[in-house]
Design a protein around this nucleic acid. Structure first.
Lengths: 106, 106
DNA sequence: ACGATAGTTCGAATATATTCGAACATTGAA
DNA sequence: TTCAATGTTCGAATATATTCGAACTATCGT
């Protein structure tokens, strides 16, 4: 896979972060990464096809929320927790604390 | 104007709130309401036409962020701050604290 | 080099949002 | 009751997002 682009934390825009988090599938992914640590894409699909999940991970990546790293044949995804916390203090905590059941896995 | 519908705070969905806040114009409106208290629609247009602002206020209303009340010939809009704070503690504080310059008025 | 696995990219269909002018509704005041 | 001011609604154009199958790419193990 080509080089994956991750924005520097300073160029992460609040609107983009909020937008990325406003999709139930993506919010669920973020919740799971926050809770369980890094994971592969397919471990977090909610029964959706790979191409759909790839799209969602891309949105999360471009918003600056997730960092993806190639690890052998799989892609490991990690929440950029400390960076986001630094840039937008309290935001992730508030979002994660809401504990809404957002999407049911298929 | 027909009766304006406002969702009860318990039925407000996080996704919808995040989505409503992800638009720069709407985020600016929320910032201004938070800072300056209630305001009319037209006081917060950013040079956008009435119909556009009406749309944005409707999204904010339906997301549960703003309460609109008819006051004589004008519509007064108020951030539902304490209700949102109760439902999603820390969320608005985090969003407002970011202080991003989000949209330039026209 | 081949096969298996994990993701990405492409393309096209569908759905959803945004924008804004024009017409309409509501109110208070002259 | 006519007017001006404030918003809403409608409609249509445009833009943007989502979805998912199919084809492709990269990596590891054999």
């Amino acid at each position: 896979m080509r080089t994956i682009h991750h924005p520097a934390i300073e160029e992460v825009a609040l609107s983009q972060v909020l937008y990325a988090l406003s999709d139930p599938v993506r919010l669920r992914v973020v919740q799971q990464l926050a809770q369980g640590g890094e994971a592969t894409c397919s471990a977090l699909d909610c029964g959706r096809p790979k191409s759909s999940m790839s799209h969602h991970f891309r949105v999360l990546r471009e918003a600056g929320l997730v960092r993806t790293r190639t690890d052998g044949p799989v892609h490991m995804n990690d929440l950029r927790r400390s960076e986001i916390d630094q840039r937008f203090p309290g935001l992730l905590a508030a979002v994660l604390a809401s504990g809404q059941e957002l999407v049911r896995p298929r």
